[in-house]
């Protein structure tokens, strides 16, 4: 049985105008997303800002309950009513290490608070647990009385990880958890996350706009565009032989030392507004392979190769000439 099953999840935000708050439209931030996640597995979610990946995460945590769709945890459906129970098993690490920690609590208090909220043990056991957790994420337990501002960005993100691990969740959502860090520090934190996953058999949903980081972390990758998954498959295949032209564009944008003379396939323009998505395939306005029918018919996410899905009418066409190296 998979750890997490998400079926056809949508999150729509109404657009209201005027003094009466008349609903004049809807922003389809997440528009029918389905996936499963096994125990101990990492699913990478990639996409540009505004593709709905952050909204998806917040819906999964029921911080903003989904509009429609189903979330099953270990086979049991999760509802708004028992979201609190669900949160004992699912935790999140945010992007900005400067905003995600309360500035006037010591890091010891920050890590201890989830234990207090869920009433895990007495004062003494909590103190021991906090010291263990800080040591586990590579921080000096003797500094548990220090405040977040006394730590570097990478160290703060470790505090955020310790806080998420405190109540021993089985799933951790990593929402751009290393994007705000220096590249050199990103590596430290990513390695730490992998070590923890191995030790605790955690599942991750790893969200980023940078495919190179996602590839390192994930078993499978789902690429999102305008609220939908456009490609989904094993991490290596998606990065090495992408099926969707959008995945290829994302890959070519990753800065690399070795490709410094090669010309890159640039993605023009910006993602369209999810309040007013293009007809047919949402990517056709920026797609280098777009043909007239792309504007008319929306491609479904279907399996083109074993275990590999893509939402593109011409998924197998672009692969040959665009194969990397």
């Amino acid at each position: 049985m998979p750890l997490l099953e998400v079926k056809n999840l949508t999150k729509h935000f109404p657009i209201r105008r005027g003094i009466l708050g008349r609903e004049v439209g809807v922003v389809r931030a997440v528009d029918g997303v389905s996936f499963t996640l096994e125990e101990g597995e990492t699913l990478g979610l990639v996409g540009e800002s505004g593709c709905g990946k952050t909204t998806l995460v917040r819906s999964l945590l029921f911080l903003e309950p989904p509009t429609t769709g189903e979330v099953r945890f270990r086979g049991e459906p999760v509802t708004v009513a028992d979201a609190q129970r669900f949160r004992r098993h699912v935790q999140i690490v945010f992007q900005d290490p400067y905003q995600s920690l309360p500035p006037r609590m010591t890091i010891g208090e920050i890590v201890a608070d989830p234990l207090k909220i869920h009433k895990v043990g007495d004062q003494k056991t909590i103190e021991t647990r906090v010291r263990q957790l800080l040591a586990e994420v590579g921080l000096d337990p003797a500094r548990s009385g220090d405040y977040p501002f006394q730590f570097s960005g990478g160290q703060r993100q470790r505090v955020g990880i310790a806080r998420a691990l405190a109540i021993e969740p089985s799933l951790v959502l990593l929402d751009e958890s290393v994007s705000a860090l220096d590249v050199s520090v990103q590596a430290q934190v990513l390695n730490l996350l992998k070590d923890i996953q191995e030790r605790r058999r955690l599942s991750y949903i790893f969200i980023s706009h940078d495919l190179s980081v996602v590839r390192y972390m994930s078993d499978r990758i789902a690429v999102m565009y305008l609220g939908r998954i456009v490609e989904h498959g094993p991490a290596e295949d998606v990065v090495e032989k992408p099926l969707h032209p959008y995945t290829r564009a994302l890959l070519s944008a990753v800065p690399s030392l070795r490709r410094r003379t090669a010309t890159r396939a640039r993605l023009r323009g910006e993602p369209p507004s999810p309040a007013n998505p293009p007809s047919g395939c949402a990517f056709h306005t920026r797609c280098p392979l777009a043909r007239p029918e792309c504007a008319e018919r929306r491609p479904e996410l279907i399996e083109w190769l074993p275990g590999r899905q893509a939402a593109c009418h011409f998924a197998l066409e672009g692969t040959a000439e665009n194969r990397r190296d």
Binding site: F94, P102, I117, R163
Partner: peptide
């Protein structure tokens, strides 16, 4: 985010 994180912690 820290307020959101606190809510996510339950």
């Amino acid at each position: 985010d820290y307020a959101l994180a606190a809510r996510a912690l339950g």
